[in-house]
Amino acid sequence: MLAMVVCLPLLRPQSSERVTVGQPQKVAGKRNDAVETKIPVSILDGYHVNSNTPSDEYLIPLKVTWTSLGALEGGQVTYPKAEKITVGDQTLSVFTGKFDLAVNFKISPKAPAGPGIATGKLGFQACNNKMCFPPKSVEFNVPYQVQ
């Protein structure tokens, strides 16, 4: 029994950060201005995440959700062009490597002047050609300055 308890945790594969989210660029502008930022995303070599439009209804897409926009409005995300890869007999729509997610905001007409932070989450589900890992989400901040 002791051996089982001790051994089973060692059966886990070595884990590392398969997906990392970099710091988005700070946005700045006056009330009613349209502003844009980029969220840098990096996928570890040998891994992929489903694109924002997976090839199958059961697959979990890469998706940005906003938890707080602060003085910003909108937050529409433009995702990069997906790659097609084949795993077994399945053709998958995925992202690999490094890419940016472009995000468009409008500064609220009632925004108070000064700094602020919008917060969001990047949800994803990563795999390689042999195995998949549970869905995760990573939080990120977009700093802004209302002039």
């Binding site: 059961y58 697959l59 979990i60 795993v87 077994g88 007999d89 399945q90 998958l92 589900q125 795999c127 050609n129 042999k130 195995m131 998949c132 549970p134 869905p135």
Partner: peptide, 10 residues
């Protein structure tokens, strides 16, 4: 396994 796991489906 899971429905979202491609290799599982294979």
């Amino acid at each position: 396994w899971a429905t979202w796991c491609g290799p599982c489906r294979i």
